[in-house]
């Protein structure tokens, strides 16, 4: 089963350790470029003036909040179906970063809503379903903390993650299904309703958020592997564990 070699926590622990610096450095470089474009190079928007610059944080955070949820639910499904521990650990590792991205999407959305719509918050379909996403992430984290046996927590969290995945298409299509406050998609396949340099800055920031999320979840995954494999011979042999006081 060579394809499953990295499915074992012991192997993946060292592989993840090698991957982290690459993703972290890429994320940092892209963030610097993206911020320079977003805050300085990109011209002001005709109607929204400088307030539109929130897009460079808001859209990447909102995309990551949904994308990370789907990835978390996928690993939850793998953990349930194949009973693989590493899949469950991956799902566990993603939840806090997903919650962070969701909170950031809501926060930046509120700060964008005030100057453009005249209100920080409305019970609009897009905003309400994104708030439910935050509660799903927080519920999954709380559920894990409430169950002492990690393997039982894996199963419960996986089930909750899978049930909650129905919320993701609701968020995504909410602007089409309900004609409320939040605007439709700025970027559609083949055409975007924004300037090229704005689009470039946005895409750079999306990749920066993406690589950051990968790096930070891999670091957290390494911590989770150590927490749950503590007592295993391979963990005791690790140089960084031996050196720890």
């Amino acid at each position: 089963m060579s394809g499953f070699k990295y499915a074992a926590p012991a192997q993946f622990y060292s592989l993840a350790g090698k991957m982290v610096p690459w993703f972290a450095v890429l994320a940092a470089i892209l963030a610097v470029i993206g911020l320079a474009i977003g805050l300085y190079v990109a011209p002001i928007d005709v109607t929204q003036k400088d307030s539109y610059r929130i897009i460079f944080i808001h859209v990447p955070a909102a995309w990551m909040s949904m994308f990370l949820y789907v990835v978390m639910a996928f690993w939850g499904a793998m953990a349930l179906g194949l009973n693989t521990r590493l899949s469950a650990m991956m799902a566990q590792s993603i939840a806090p970063t997903g919650a962070l991205m969701t909170a950031l999407a809501l926060w930046t959305g509120a700060l964008w809503g005030k100057p453009t719509w005249g209100t920080y918050w409305a019970w609009d379909a897009r905003m309400t379903s994104e708030l439910i996403l935050l509660f799903l992430y927080l519920g999954i984290i709380a559920l894990r903390n409430a169950i002492d046996d990690p393997r039982r927590a894996d199963k419960a969290c996986s089930v909750l993650a899978l049930v909650g995945v129905v919320n993701v298409p609701i968020i995504y299509y909410s602007v089409n299904w309900w004609n409320t406050l939040h605007q439709g998609a700025t970027i559609k396949m083949g055409k975007a309703s924004i300037d090229d340099i704005m689009l470039a800055g946005l895409l750079v920031m999306v990749f920066a958020f993406w690589f950051y999320s990968i790096a930070v979840t891999l670091v957290r995954l390494r911590a989770i592997i150590l927490e749950r494999e503590a007592g295993a011979a391979w963990v005791a042999r690790l140089a960084e564990v031996k050196e720890e006081r």
Binding site: A7, R151, E227, A230, A233, E244
Partner: peptide, 28 residues
């Protein structure tokens, strides 16, 4: 969290061959 996990791992009793938790139902 990484530092706490290394500390925990350092001060755990070592069971040769696997983790402290039950691994009987593990597939990979």
């Amino acid at each position: 969290r990484c530092k706490r996990a290394r500390h925990l791992a350092k001060h755990s009793d070592v069971h040769e061959g696997g983790a402290a938790g039950a691994q009987l139902k593990e597939t990979v």
